[in-house]
Every structure is written in structure tokens, then in C-alpha cells.
Design a protein around this nucleic acid. Structure first.
Lengths: 197, 197
DNA sequence: AGTTTCATTGAATTAATTTTCAACGAACCA
DNA sequence: TGGTTCGTTGAAAATTAATTCAATGAAACT
């Protein structure tokens, strides 16, 4: 079993290395040999672990889909806190658990541009914006959130977050913003609901 | 001269076609033959106009740099209005002047991921965030904007906008948000300054 | 100790695209 | 009209990166 575990371990290292490179430079800009060099291992060996570059990517995105499934369920207690808390955690991960951070960025990229069509299809099985639009609707009923199309609001919020995350991935000088800055997108002018500090 | 004008015209068509495809599908995912088909013209002829795919991209990004130079100077009258007005115009362009819209998205992509290194270098000669951070600082002095590092605020704002724009580029169902939703990122809780409708 | 399995390498092969090119014909010029 | 230039094409060549593979040696198993 040690042999099998070893292999599993190695696969993980490759996946995490590739994830980092894909996020920093983009899928197509990352050569198989770049991944191999970074691990490090020979190009040939990498193919012993993954049958192709695209399969490697697909495995990452599939992991992302599963993981995201978890996250979105975790905490749907209070509409007003949900987003701040989520962002705070996400931004913390950027230093503590880079892979979570990178995964988030990759999933966003996969939905958009510059990835094989098939990969996009996998990434699109996630419906974060739809899910959180329910939370927003709830928040709107309570008068906490801005009025307007909840789904549009939700998509806007996540698109903005994605933008921030990608900036962070590329621009290492840039420090994560205060989550409240972003939550203001959906919060609107709500002075009654303000954090007491 | 008609011959030369003709050629210039043709080059523009190619540039605009490529821009659209690059933004919708990504640079690497767009084959020269895709561009040629879309124009339409033969692959060989495209090389009569541009010596390589990368040169074509570089020319687009260079145009973007010049154009952005204009824009950021245009209207720096009133800090509070600046951002709302800018966004309103930008979102309008998405339907009226798609190329401006696409250009904006391309420039953001070029700064980030998935483009040749050399292109990134060109795109990074733009310093929108630095420029607008001055406006933000001014707004902060007037008590209109949220407190905090003005540059970080500025980068955050533009990164969010970039996220929205990319969403719009890919998800045609998604309608541009109300500019105020995004300006809330820098506005903070400012009830005295509210649009009268 | 001998045998089998499997991780490992780097060079050879293949695949996908970009880029070049020889050939043709239409527009322009004398 | 005859000649030159230039737009145009599609197929051939070159390039680049992914993928395969035969060979090697170390670990595990008998």
C-alpha cells in the first residue's frame, strides 16, 4: 500500500504545482515542461501520472466543483454576515491555504476564457451566483440589502470578487481589501446595520 | 491613395474581428484560421496584413494603451461623479461601441494571465489605478469616500470592474449592473451624498 | 539471490498551429 | 495594349509543444 499512497501523494503534488502555475500564468502559457520543472520531475514521468495536460486540468476543475459544493452549504445562517464572513475566510486562505485560493481563481477562469470548451462545461456545473441569490433575496426582505434583481446582484458580487482574486493572484503587492468594501455592492445604504467596532 | 486607404480599412476590420474573438474565447483559443474565417479572408492573406498572431495582438494592446491614455484624462472634475459617469459610459459602450468595451476587457486580460509575456509588459504601461487613486484621495479629503489606503481602494475598484466586464463579455444574459453598486466599493456609508431621483 | 513490478528519464514521434510561398488574376500605370 | 504591382489563395514547410516509448535501475516480493 505504501507504493500506492506514494503515487497518490505524488499526484497531489503535481496537481498543486499545476494549479499554481495555471493561475499565475494561464493554462496555455504553462507548458508541461514548466510543470515538470517546478515539481520537479521529468516530462515523461508526468505523463505516467496524468494521461494529458487537459486531463490534469479537468481533474483540478472537478476537484474544484466538489470542494465548492461543500463551501456553499457550510454557513447560511444570517444574510448580512454571510458574505463578509465568507470573504474574510477566502482572503485569509490566500496566505494560509494557497490552494483554496488558487482553486477559487481557477474555477472562475475556467468559466470564462482561455480554457478548453470541455473544461468550461465542468466548471459551469457550479451555480454559486444562483445559490447566493437566495440569500440575497432573504436579505432584501429583511431590508438589509439593496433593492433590485437578486440574481443580477449576486452575479455582480461574484464577478467583482473574481476580479479581486485574479488581481491578487497576479499582483503580489496588492493586499486583500476589507471584505466590507465588496459587500457594499449588495448592502447599499444601510446605516441601521453597521458593524459595531 | 485609394489602395492604401483600402489596406488600412482592411487592417482595422481584422483588428476588430480579432479583438472580439480574443475577448470572447481567449487569445490562445483563437486560431488564426478562426480570425480569417470570421473576417472573412484566407489565412495566407491575413499574414499579408500582419506578420504574426502575436504582432496582431500587440498592435491591439498598443492601441488600447493609447486610447486609455485619452480616457483617463477626459473628465476629472468632481470626485463623486467621476466613477459613476465613467461606468455608465463604459456599460453603454458594451452595446453601442463594442470595440471600446472589448478593448477594456482585453487590456485587463493582458495585464493578467494567459498572454505572452511581452504583451503583458505593454499593457502594464497603463497605470489607471495609480491615476484614479489621486481622485479618490481628493474625494476622501472631502469626506465623500471611504477611509483607507487610496491606492488599494483604487486597485480594488478597477479589479472589481474588470471582473464585471469579463462576466459581461462571456455571459451575454448578464445585464450591466447599476454603476452605483460598484461605486459603493469606494463610497462607503455616505448618506449625505445621495443621488436625488 | 532471483524475479517482477514500477518509477524514472530524455530522446523520438506526433499533433496542432502558425508561417511561408509559388501561382494566379485583377487593378493600376505608360 | 502591355507591363507592373499587389491582393488573394490554398497547400507546403516550419515551429512548437504535447505525447509516446524503449531503456534503466531501484524497490518489493519469492
Amino acid at each position: 500500500m505504501t507504493r500506492k499512497e506514494q503515487k497518490e501523494e505524488r499526484r497531489k503534488i503535481i496537481l498543486m504545482t499545476a494549479l499554481k502555475l495555471f493561475v499565475e500564468r494561464g493554462f496555455h502559457e504553462t507548458k508541461i515542461s514548466d510543470i515538470a520543472d517546478a515539481v520537479p520531475m521529468s516530462v515523461g514521468l508526468l505523463f505516467h501520472y496524468f494521461e494529458s495536460k487537459e486531463v490534469l486540468l479537468k481533474e483540478l476543475v472537478t476537484m474544484g466543483v466538489q470542494y465548492t459544493g461543500h463551501v456553499s452549504k457550510v454557513k447560511a445562517r444570517d444574510p448580512s454576515d454571510f458574505f463578509v464572513t465568507f470573504l474574510r475566510q477566502l482572503f485569509e486562505y490566500s496566505t494560509v491555504q494557497p490552494w483554496v485560493f488558487n482553486m477559487f481563481v481557477l474555477m472562475g477562469q475556467a468559466r470564462k476564457t482561455g480554457m478548453p470548451e470541455e473544461v468550461r462545461a465542468i466548471a459551469e456545473t457550479i451555480h454559486t451566483a444562483e445559490d447566493t441569490s437566495r440569500i440575497i433575496r432573504k436579505g432584501q426582505k429583511e431590508g438589509l440589502f439593496r433593492k433590485g434583481d437578486a440574481l443580477q446582484l449576486s452575479i455582480t458580487f461574484w464577478a467583482a470578487v473574481q476580479g479581486i482574486m485574479e488581481e491578487m493572484a497576479v499582483n503580489k503587492d496588492y493586499k486583500a481589501p476589507d471584505p466590507e468594501w465588496l459587500v457594499a455592492i449588495i448592502l447599499g445604504n444601510n446605516d441601521h446595520k453597521r458593524e459595531k467596532k
